[in-house]
Amino acid sequence: MKAFTLLNGLVCPLDRANVDTDAIIPKQFLKSIKRSGFGPNLFDEWRYLDHGEPGMDNSKRAINPEFVLNFPRYAGAQVLLARDNFGCGSSREHAPWAIEDYGFRSVIAPSFADIFFNNCFKNGLLPIVLAADIVEQLFREAEATEGYKLVVDLEAQTVTTPAGASFGFDITAHRKHCLLNGLDEIGLTLQHADVIRSFEAQRKAQQPWLFV
């Protein structure tokens, strides 16, 4: 996994609540058996004017000029600013894969759906919850100022605006450690293989019907 430490990234504001993972990456792209290459189809139904299918040459498709991701001023954005309940719906990890593959490294919102939030951390993508009034302020500033960037400092757990206003965010020690160091979680867990094995043996003795 890609490590996340410090980011000074252009902000793209997506002003909609309840953005679901079907919208983030529509189902037809889930037929892929790979975990990369989803970026060109991020928000496919909003981003393009035609119907997208896997295997199309996306550079030749008509883009929707009214969709925020297509505004020239947001080209190369690395911070996605979003509204409440971002990432609701399907558990598809293709959603964070698509967001990360597009070039975003962090998503900031007042709230996230649980499964999506969890999936982000497995992919070097940092989801940050900030209070609704702060997110509202960031929306106003990002929309008003071309080239608006935010500094995301994971070590310090802060988001800092160009004017120097700084906001703290929460993250568990475990997730922070994994993200800062780009660690493979499976490898970490397997360091406890003996503990898992003895737990399992005990469980098997107590509830043998679970081990057919």
Binding site: S91, I115, N119, T172, E185, I186, T189, I196, E200
Partner: peptide, 23 residues
């Protein structure tokens, strides 16, 4: 019972466990 992402699918296959915090 709950849904998980594909990285977690791999984690469960490899370790029979999930990294989780109580809700």
């Amino acid at each position: 019972a709950h849904g998980i992402g594909t990285s977690e699918v791999e984690h469960v296959m490899a370790t029979q466990t999930l990294v989780a915090k109580k809700s």
